[in-house]
């Protein structure tokens, strides 16, 4: 049994090397052109994406000591991977290699580049959804607990950064929140 909770997925594929492969080599001239006129070797790689659990300690806050050029506070980003993510990474690596080898690939090499928080590109969290205003910012309708006329429908309502692309989920939640807002407006509640 793996010693972590939640899950991960893989993305990847195979391709042939293009003209970039000779950039680091020392060759030049006719030889280089000849070499560049043919496609290079095949390569195949997969990359794993895993879920980061919803840690309260992983947070952003405003830094009022350091201001930007407009005199506005700058951002302090305070986040780290914890044991669950680190254990998951080990499993991702081992299972990835196992799959590739089982598929008949040779010379399988694994690596773990650390992948700091933020490199997944899909920003999630910081205005989390929840039932309790003491521990969350938004209610189940993406509505700010303390400010009913404010809805937050980007990725910030998510409590954890899951392992799949979240954009469609953002859109679905946005449609749902907008629908709710319109109905509440019609009822005169907003």
């Amino acid at each position: 049994m793996p010693n972590f909770i939640r899950g991960y997925g893989y993305q990847g594929g195979g391709s042939r090397e293009g003209w970039g492969r000779y950039i680091a080599e020392a060759n030049y001239g006719r030889d280089l052109k000849e070499a560049l006129s043919n496609p290079g070797d095949w390569g195949f790689s997969i990359t794993a994406f895993g879920e980061c659990l919803p840690y309260h300690e992983n947070k952003i806050s405003l830094n009022r000591e350091v201001l930007d050029i407009y005199g506005l506070p700058t951002l302090i980003m305070d986040a780290e991977w914890k044991t669950n993510e680190k254990e998951m990474r080990k499993d991702m690596t081992a299972a990835g290699a196992e799959m590739l080898e089982a598929a008949g690939l040779k010379d399988v090499k694994t690596f773990d580049d650390g992948g700091n928080p933020g490199l997944g590109i899909h920003e999630m969290g910081t205005a989390r959804m929840g039932r309790d205003p003491k521990t969350s910012v938004l209610n189940k309708w993406n509505q700010v607990h303390s400010l009913p006329n404010v809805f937050v429908t980007d990725g910030s309502f998510m409590t954890s950064a899951s392992c799949v692309n979240p954009s469609l989920t953002y859109m679905a939640f946005t449609a749902r929140a907008a629908n709710y807002a319109v109905e509440e407006l019609k009822k005169g509640n907003l």
């Binding site: 293009g18 390569g43 090499k109 690596f111 580049d113």
Partner: peptide, 19 residues
């Protein structure tokens, strides 16, 4: 070339490292 660097950049752009 550093394999880690290659793999990192390859997933981003073109399959090799550039300055």
């Amino acid at each position: 070339m550093d394999r880690r660097e290659v793999l990192r950049v390859s997933s981003l752009i073109l399959g090799y490292s550039l300055t």
